[in-house]
Amino acid sequence: MSPGANESVIRVVGLGKSYETAAGLFPALKGVNLDIKSGEYIAIMGPSGSGKSTFMNLLGCLDTPSTGDYFLAGRNVAHMDKDALAVLRNRTLGFVFQGFNLLPRMSLQDNVALPLVYAGDDKETRRAKARELLGKVGLGQYAESLPNRISGGQQQRVAIARALVNSPRLILADEPTGNLDSHTSEEIMRLFGELNAEGITIVLVTHENDIAAHAKRQVKFLDGEIVSDHLTAQVPA
């Protein structure tokens, strides 16, 4: 067990989110409770529309909950303002999207360095860190290329490098392999495994069992509620 393993990185209490729709308020998340310790590797599963993305967006400080509290590294972020959330997104966590979300006009190096621009780092630091992380995900030779010059799997690795560039202790990934073939998906999962081995807490969403099998713990959503929460070893294959 790594040091600080008992410390909660994420703790949500009665977390709820309702969307305004034409048919009235729609409760996408209905009072979820979850505790995630430092160094954990969790797969969030569940059918489409079960509220996984809604939950991840709240964890990622991209959205604010309708009800409940969310403690990120001990601080309640449920009522923070937009700029405070932006700072958390920048420094405390890294988010990986299904669609990679790289900026098409920028070189890979500049894409990876972009969070550092908002952190206020100088040009040399930005360059050095971006290079280092591109190397870490095995794409150092493409630093000056534009995103459309590389494959989807490679783009997702660049996105992971970008998520890691501010040295967060938490990575959130919403269906990171959703747009990738199974071989490439395996490579991405291997990268997540390595990061977790370094002590980084990882929460990822997937609806594929063999992807989820890489995680140490699996949490299942259905209709905006958690319906099961097991260690992977105990999950029936």
Binding site: G60, L62, K82, D83, A86, V87, R89, N90, R91, F95, F97, N101, L102, L103, L114, P115, Y118, A119, R162, N166
Partner: peptide
């Protein structure tokens, strides 16, 4: 708009 969303997601504040 999407670019703005990406920038915000990685930590751009409103003033940025």
């Amino acid at each position: 708009t999407r670019e703005i969303g990406i920038r915000m997601a990685i930590g751009a504040r409103q003033k940025d």
